[in-house]
Simulated assay, not measured.
Amino acid sequence: MSSLLQKQNLTSEQLQLLASEMSKKQKSGGIAWLLWFFTGGFGGHRFYLGKVGTGVAMLLTLGGLGIWTLIDLFLLSGMIRDTNERIENEILSEIRLLSHAKANSKVAAG
């Protein structure tokens, strides 16, 4: 389900919580690009984006002898977007769980 559809049913309090959590957890495009530029051959940008497995592979192969690093020049924007969408979906799931738990506790108390 797209995050836009998930956000439609949120209250203003939940939307504020989402924005607050996203500002804490989202990955910066600027930092990812700087890491690619300075540590691309070692996979620093991939570690930053939570792609530890491919980061280790890049580290061990020196970025596929530079080829993988060059390919990431074209893939990095999509990786940043995908990582931030994943983070947003995780936060939305936590908000839904929290709202269900609150609703269940009100029913149990009432």
Rank of each mutant, 00 (worst) to 15 (best):
S105H: 11
G44V: 09
F38L: 15
S93M: 06
F37A: 14
T54A: 08
L5W: 05
F74P: 02
L60Y: 06
F74I: 10
I80C: 01
S2I: 02
S28F: 02
W36Y: 02
T61L: 11
T54K: 14
L73K: 05
E94K: 10
D82F: 00
G29E: 11
A103S: 13
T54M: 15
G43Q: 05
S23T: 04
L34R: 05
T83W: 01
N89A: 11
V52S: 13
Q26C: 08
W33S: 00
T69E: 00
S99L: 03
H100G: 03
G53T: 15
K51L: 14
M1Y: 05
Y48P: 03
T54C: 04
L17K: 11
G64L: 01
W68S: 10
G29A: 11
L92P: 04
L70P: 04
V107E: 15
N89P: 04
Q14I: 05
A32H: 09
K51P: 01
H45T: 07
N9K: 13
V52L: 13
M79H: 03
S28Y: 03
G110V: 15
G43N: 09
A19N: 11
Q16M: 07
L18G: 03
L35M: 09
G44A: 12
T39I: 04
T83R: 12
F37N: 00
S93D: 14
G30Q: 03
G53Q: 12
N89F: 04
G55K: 12
G43M: 08
L59I: 10
L60P: 06
L98N: 12
L60E: 10
L4M: 09
I71R: 04
M1W: 03
S3L: 05
L92E: 01
Q14D: 11
R96Y: 10
H100W: 10
G40R: 02
L15K: 15
Q26P: 03
N9D: 12
G30K: 06
T61H: 04
Q16R: 10
L10S: 05
I67K: 04
T61I: 09
K24W: 00
L18P: 06
I87F: 08
H100I: 09
L70M: 13
G64A: 05
M79S: 01
G64W: 01
I31V: 15
V107Q: 15
W68Q: 07
Y48V: 03
S2L: 00
L73S: 07
L60A: 13
A103Q: 12
F47V: 08
R96P: 01
S2H: 02
L4C: 02
L59A: 14
I67C: 04
K106W: 11
I80F: 01
F42E: 01
R46H: 06
S3G: 01
S105M: 14
G50R: 12
K102S: 07
T61Q: 07
K27I: 06
K25Y: 02
R81Q: 07
M58Q: 14
S28D: 07
S105R: 14
F37R: 01
S77E: 06
K51N: 14
G50N: 11
L34I: 07
K51Y: 05
I31H: 00
L73E: 01
L73I: 08
A57T: 13
T39W: 02
L17V: 07
N104P: 00
